[in-house]
């Protein structure tokens, strides 16, 4: 069983004995794994298997829940992100996130994209214009909205909104992009657009994609991790996970026998 091993590639995030609790409830059980740089890591597993919790641990979004508590270590480029000297705000600039439901802020398309850059102090209009064009292009949305950047973002279609959210995350120039079931509410065409964008984006970013759709993982993930009840059951090359999984539970899940 190749659990959490990745020898030949640079490790971006290293998770060591990570456990996460919400009050009395333990959501993640002593997780250990490495996330390779510049690849897409797919995370699959049934509902409440800890996928989203894991994702929200990586950019410390769980801090928003005062009941939550993390044990163990998460190293981003070798530095522990839960170390007291680390600022959660600075971390989130390096680790961006796209949520399950498209959630544009109630402002214009343009303002949505430059929300992050403005917060990091970029005020120059020309610089912001460049960021908007570059990130919207990267999210395959530029051609559809370039003439109406001042339109309220809430008026875009669901698929467009989700790509806008992707662009908004990219605009912060993160190193890691976390996606929490980004296509769960989208039609197949919008899903395909986002998947296309992700396969291009992995050249520059480390991407972690939580998905309920095992087919999606098999399509675009380079490596796939299978979570069950807060535990990491198996992590390996996607082809291996989907064809010759080491664990019987993984095999049952990917062949659709439960979950």
């Amino acid at each position: 069983m190749r659990k959490g091993q990745c020898v030949e590639r640079k490790v971006k995030i290293s998770v060591q004995n990570l456990s996460v609790f919400f009050g009395q409830h333990q959501a993640l059980r002593s997780l250990t794994m490495n996330v390779p740089a510049n690849r897409i890591l797919g995370i699959i597993g049934p509902a409440s298997s800890g996928k989203t919790t894991f994702l929200r641990t990586l950019n410390r979004m769980n801090d928003l829940d005062p009941e939550s508590r993390a044990e163990g270590r998460v190293l981003l480029d070798g530095a522990d992100i839960y170390h007291p000297s680390q600022s959660a705000v600075q971390l989130r600039k390096r680790v961006g996130m796209v949520f399950a439901l498209p959630m544009p802020l109630p402002m214009s398309i343009y303002d949505n994209v430059v929300y992050g850059p403005r917060l990091s102090g970029i005020r120059n209009r020309a610089a912001l214009d460049v960021i908007v064009e570059r990130t919207l292009t990267a999210a395959f949305l530029w051609d559809e909205v370039k003439d109406r950047l001042n339109m309220l973002a809430l008026r875009l279609s669901g698929g467009q909104q989700q790509r806008l959210c992707l662009a908004r995350t990219l605009a912060m120039e993160p190193e890691v992009v976390l996606l929490d079931e980004p296509c769960s509410g989208l039609d197949p065409i919008s899903t395909a657009r986002i998947e296309d964008a992700l396969t291009v984006l992995k050249e520059r970013y480390t991407i972690i994609l939580v998905t309920n759709n095992t087919k999606q993982a098999s399509r675009i993930a380079d490596e796939t991790a299978f979570f069950l009840m807060g535990e990491l059951v198996e992590l390996g090359e996607t082809s291996q996970i989907f064809t010759v999984p080491c664990d019987q539970r993984t095999s049952d899940y990917v062949t659709g026998r439960f979950g």
């Binding site: 950019n59 979004m61 928003l64 705000v89 600075q90 989130r92 600039k93 961006g96 996130m97 949520f99 439901l101 959630m103 802020l105 109630p106 929300y115 992050g116 917060l119 990091s120 959210c165 908004r168 995350t169 912060m172």
Partner: peptide, 15 residues
């Protein structure tokens, strides 16, 4: 959700 999004985009509480 607005607060979560803003937070994930590296905004502080005040921002």
């Amino acid at each position: 959700a607005y607060r979560e999004v803003s937070c994930s985009l590296a905004a502080t509480s005040w921002e």
